[in-house]
Design a protein around this nucleic acid. Structure first.
Lengths: 247, 247
DNA sequence: ACCTGAACACCGTTCAAGT
DNA sequence: ACCTGAACACCGTTCAAGT
């Protein structure tokens, strides 16, 4: 009975549609459609993903897709989860080692598939893959004495960090993009743009930062050293918290 | 000469288009168009914002807008910046006090205008308002002995945290939405959904968390206590860093 | 029960014509 | 130099008709 009140998207992500199954066998399945859509997104970005292009890729009429997904929005949500890899495995490592790896893998996956970034994180994790990541982070923190709420919070904060970092790196490196957003980051040099536009009276600190070349000509300020820097900030905070709980 | 190579969006955000100015006076200006678009987004969300609806709101034909913006994408980027308030003022407060306030104000603004979340953070900050926020964060950290790179990094991490927190809170509270994404968060009870869907063997830790009621029936786990919790994690990390630099 | 052709409503953008 | 009507290409979605 409870099954019935699952939101349709969630039900579909977990293969829980009630499928009556008589009459002609379906010539497709959701997984095939989603895989095709992911292939298109990997090749052409998110704006290449069209109900038409997906149907075409799968060899079917556009309207047939509506037998398998409620709407394009639904398809996008399901795609984002299906495109997420498995989290790294723990192998008995201490929590700090593992979560460093976990967060970096999270960022790397988003750099590989930047279109997942564009899909936004407006949805609490609800797909099988997203929840695996959450589960693994909780497992890594199992022996720290932190309660479930704190552990969930930490995992959330770390994904947030990975997401932000990936978005920034992508924006600054992404000379490839066609959209208006991509004009800002690309080859032109972010620091130079700021230098041209800032009034030193209203933006004194930023002006100083630009003059100190804090935004190098190359987008080095979002490279791996910076990633580690911010991550260690977070992990130090977590370590403090654990010590406090024990002390 | 340098002015010329500003990306068009940036030039427009800072009022730097080269305006030849003869012939009939324009009956509109960018600011008016952007204000109208923001009004629509506040009322109807982002999907209410259409070149047609904006033009209508401003009393002009749809195509006239293309005299003022290069594309709809550009308009959205400019909107996001224009809708950002001024950052809180420092008033000589110590960095930790101020950055706490700064981060919370950042989140609150995004909760007020959730459509800015949907616009994504795929662009490095380039508008007058976004850069004011960055400048103020740098100012707060001026006396800490951290270099520009570190200070920029910290500001970035804190905005990332505010964004993530706002996105999550909005998703979990947002029974109001129409999209497929909003079905997951709303009234149904996020914890209940997880409970129905999780296989305890593959998701042992999450299952335990759900049983421990870590995702209360009310979405209390993204409330203010949680916000402060994660933020303090970050600030503790920063404090450690500053102390290390001085020691 | 599934697939599909035709059709609808809508939307971003271009262009040539007006003043 | 600005505004606009007409038109184009495209897209998500519905529905009734086919098998």
């Amino acid at each position: 009975m409870a099954e019935q009140q699952l939101p349709p998207v969630v039900a579909r992500m977990w293969g829980r549609e009630n499928s009556p199954r008589h009459g002609p066998r379906p010539s497709l399945d959701l997984a095939g459609i989603v895989a095709a859509a992911i292939r298109i997104a990997d090749r052409d970005g998110l704006e290449g993903v069209t109900m038409g292009s997906v149907a075409n890729q799968v060899g079917v009429a556009t309207m047939s897709l509506y037998r398998y997904v409620g709407s394009k929005d639904e398809l996008l949500i399901i795609m984002a989860d299906a495109a997420t890899p498995e989290p790294p495995s723990i192998d008995g490592r201490p929590w700090r080692d593992y979560l460093t790896d976990w967060t970096r893998a999270n960022r790397d996956f988003l750099l590989d598939r930047p279109w997942v970034l564009a899909l936004g994180q407006h949805t609490p994790p609800a797909g099988p893959r997203a929840l695996r990541w959450l589960d693994r982070a909780l497992a890594a923190l199992a022996d720290t004495g932190l309660d479930h709420g704190a552990r969930i919070n930490i995992a959330t904060t770390l994904t947030g960090y990975a997401t932000r970092q990936a978005a920034l790196a992508h924006a600054l490196n992404g000379a490839a993009g066609r959209g208006a957003a991509d004009q800002i980051g690309g080859l032109t040099g972010y620091g130079e743009i700021l230098g041209q536009v800032l009034d030193p009276d209203r933006y004194p600190e930023l002006t100083a930062a630009v003059r100190a070349n804090a935004f190098g000509a190359e987008p080095e300020w979002v490279d791996d050293a910076d990633f580690t820097f911010g991550l260690d900030l977070l992990l130090d905070g977590i370590e403090t918290l654990i010590a406090r709980g024990r002390g």
